[in-house]
Design a protein around this nucleic acid. Structure first.
Lengths: 229, 229
DNA sequence: TGATCCTCTTTCCTATAGGATTCACCGATA
DNA sequence: TATCGGTGAATCCTATAGGAAAGAGGATCA
């Protein structure tokens, strides 16, 4: 079918639902889909030039992330934006899970993990800090990778799934949309402090550093909100 | 239109996908769907006498619970059964989340919550302890409700969603399938201890009691496995 | 003028059909 | 006898079509 352009059908066999999933995710984070707005299955299918069936499947998966909400027989809606209280709750939740992750990942540390963490910090330093999602994406991705790496190496699949269920990084970005990066220097320093604890092989210190980091993120974020209010 | 039967169109407008979801869930817990077995979308649709579309949507939602796994272009499979290591990991994960839930829920306790918790313990006592899922269901439901109530009243939507993402109770049941209830007396006592801490208004004690409960569950469960091996 | 009813559009939900791929089975050949 | 290629069925994935309900808007009547 794609012989039209002459290009080989490299990824011709890709699940459309996955494509739709990614597309909607980017649209959500880009702000093209405003909070609270209804999502028409048929309309979305027309826009993306696919049939409603893969759209339906993609939205069903997206619902588990909390980005969209579904009401039976009424359709899907974009989840409302974060309030300050929501953000505080999210950081509290991360404070429950992530310090333990840091502790355990440090206990199980490997040279490969340390190197990957260091790489993510380097990427964080070099990433641009734009206000739009396109510019912000690299920064966000490096930040997310740092925490994800620790969660993945904590050696507990269930805590990992709980961590992922927070959708923390994604939701957090939606909150900051339009605010840009204001605490890059602090965040880089705190990440580095955690990495140092890993390098020193001090799990308790790693745990403390993670607590300090998340507490700092929470405090600075709420401060930003006040300033912009 | 529904004047044919004279009955009001009570639930005539029900989403088939929800029905399929429930049906598959029960089949999974009943053991009719063995672990590791492939799930044919078309076949399941034939069995339930619906079209593949709602089956597809139900499975997409079910995947988020961890009960089934999906491989692109390959289909869905029933998730493998729990091993002892998996169970230990799950209990460790619950030990991270639930004691905090107990602490915070106790801080925010209300007479209604205390009453609901007491009711769940009463139900736990009166529930039959069969080996089959049908007989076991009431016991499991009361146990699950106790923990769910605490999680819901901890005042943090994200920790709640993380707790739910564990799918802990469901997965746990699948592990115990065929073993029946062996620690009912201990579990009831420990639930009661937690409730006492709530009634006394002692959050720290509630947290401790939850740690003791989960540690006990973990220990007894692993012991059961050894005995039956 | 205000309320009620009707109609039309939009949208959700499900069923059916067909293209594409993978896997198993089976026969032929070195 | 072991390996290779072909055939068929089963399955996944997507598109199209159609029934049913909810909401918006306007027309009619008291």
């Amino acid at each position: 079918m794609p012989a039209k352009t002459g290009k080989p059908p490299v990824i011709s066999r890709q699940v459309l639902a996955d494509h739709v999933y990614q597309e909607v995710l980017v649209a959500l984070m880009d702000g093209r889909l405003e909070a609270g707005r209804g999502i028409s299955i048929d309309g979305l299918a027309r826009d993306l030039d696919v049939s409603p069936t893969p759209v339906r499947e993609a939205l069903a998966r997206l619902e588990a992330t909390g980005m969209v909400r579904r009401v039976a027989l009424k359709g899907y809606r974009v989840a409302p934006l974060f309030s300050s209280e929501d953000l505080a709750e999210l950081m509290d939740a991360r404070l429950v899970i992530e310090p333990v992750n840091a502790l355990r990942a440090c206990e199980r540390r490997t040279p490969e993990l340390n190197q990957a963490l260091e790489q993510s910090i380097t990427d964080l330093k070099n990433a641009p800090r734009g206000a739009s999602f396109a510019e912000f994406r690299d920064y966000w991705e490096a930040d997310e990778r740092f925490h994800q790496l620790i969660a993945e190496n904590a050696g507990n699949q269930f805590i990992l799934s709980a961590f992922n269920s927070l959708g923390g990084q994604i939701q957090r970005f939606r909150f900051f949309s339009g605010l840009g990066v204001t605490d890059a220097e602090c965040a880089i320093e705190e990440h580095a402090a955690i990495l140092q604890a890993f390098a020193a092989g001090n799990p308790a210190l790693a745990q403390e550093a993670m607590v300090a980091h998340l507490t700092g993120v929470k405090k600075r974020a709420l401060l930003d909100v006040v300033e912009h209010a």
